[in-house]
Design a protein around this nucleic acid. Structure first.
Lengths: 252, 252
DNA sequence: TCGCGGTTTTGATTTTCATCAACAAGTCAT
DNA sequence: ATGACTTGTTGATGAAAATCAAAACCGCGA
């Protein structure tokens, strides 16, 4: 449990195309995982420490609660969920991560991961060893600043989830969820109004603080209203404006 | 709105004992706002940039949504709440801050504050100009690392609030809230089983995703059960173990 | 292709909490 | 100290979502 990183890198390398050399300078996700104007020569330095990639199969975890924190991860391809678990066995999905997004910031505080990160489809991540990241960030302020920005962005994101969980009704939450996914796919260059869900209704419910039946009913209702088309995991947003209106409902 | 900092520092100085020179090296909260082993000579550098303190009266805000982000703030004395507001006027309290805690990380991402920070009693904060903080953190890794740890801690805290909001029933939330405050007061050296609430039932409710009546009813019920004594804002925790048990209820 | 396990939908019922309302208790300013 | 206003308590009722249950659907491996 304490040393999954080293173990998986060495063992998996033998089996699959695991642990490829990364190359930030060429990565087409660069603007997402390391946005801002970082010049090419500094990206080369980043390459030097972003030593490895790692593949994670669907259903497997990238890291688990309690594991020693060593690295951040940038999702290259695939889809992840992060899940927090309490002493007494409650759990809650705290986020879904798409390509270009960073994982693992929860581990910095305690040096141990506070959530599980689980692949919802076969995925690949870049491994960013944290000590080295801090070291080169020290010599190069823009990277340091960027690191802070990304952490801050995560704080802001979570605050917005708190707002959702604390103040929104079931259908509003579901609408917000669909629009949020849409926005993120759009940002990745995919269609904003049509996508395939990678997670189950149960997982959506866990993220939104709802039961799976409630999520399903919301989908059905939106469908009846002609706002979306939902056949299983295939989602089409037919009236995005209607979805937006649902969120900003008559709520003082 | 854009330049509250400069304005308040210069104007308030004339009136009150505002804007005192800070002194991290002597501050008895040092272990809280800058824990870890930062040697005294580096604290002097920190002093050099932690130029000012600022007083905020009860009900006034330290900063507001949309204001330009310039500084982090360390609570020296008093009590704050942070509040996020959505487009359509929903709002939610995202946290309460006691002495030794840092405020303002939400502003790093966008360079503008994403929440309001409002004093719930007359308070005093140290102003930590962010640019300078980044600059000296660069020359001194332990400080940089500490900064990361504090941000990460905030991420973890918010994840736990998400868990609370997503999975707990009303009384469980209230119990968790009381215990959390207790723990934080204890950490400050105050009694863990007896304290005065600084916020209203409405504000507690907002934080917990509940209505004020529900909070009030939970208090009353705990009181009937002899678990707490609540007379207005004065709280005594009579059976902490019972409170803990309430949280880890029979929930698969 | 068939059948199986997991997922999703839909319905009926129950639980929880919000809402509405009235009053009590505190707090503040004068 | 007094009155006005805010905050808190408690009760009655209603709305929203959870729970329980059954059936339909889907994807996958034998």
């Amino acid at each position: 449990m304490e040393d999954r990183e080293a173990a998986s890198v060495s063992t998996q390398k033998l089996h699959s195309m695991d642990s490829l050399k990364a190359a930030c300078a060429n990565c087409n996700l660069r603007e997402l995982c390391v946005p801002g104007g970082i010049p090419i020569e500094e990206l080369v330095k980043l390459d030097a420490i972003v030593a490895m990639r790692r593949r994670v199969k669907r259903g497997e975890s990238l890291f688990n609660v309690g594991e020693k924190f060593r690295s951040l991860y940038a999702v290259r391809t695939g889809f992840f969920k992060t899940r927090i678990t309490s002493n007494d066995g409650r759990d809650q999905i705290t986020g879904f991560q798409v390509p270009g997004e960073l994982l693992g910031f929860d581990g910095v505080a305690t040096e141990h991961h506070g959530v599980d990160a689980i692949a919802l489809e076969d995925s690949e991540v870049c491994i960013l060893p944290y000590n080295e990241l801090e070291r080169i960030a020290r010599d190069f302020q823009p990277l340091q600043h960027q690191l802070h920005r990304v952490m801050s962005r995560e704080i802001v994101r979570e605050q917005n989830v708190m707002l959702l969980l604390g103040t929104m009704k079931a259908e509003e939450r579901v609408a917000a969820f669909l629009l949020n996914l849409s926005e993120r796919y759009r940002h990745l260059g995919y269609a904003a109004n049509e996508y395939v869900l990678r997670m189950t209704r149960q997982e959506i419910g866990s993220y939104l603080g709802l039961k799976l039946e409630t999520v399903s009913r919301s989908f059905s209702k939106f469908q009846e209203q002609g706002i979306i088309e939902a056949r299983g995991k295939n989602i089409k947003l037919l009236k995005m404006e209607a979805l937006r209106k649902l969120i900003s409902a008559t709520k003082s």
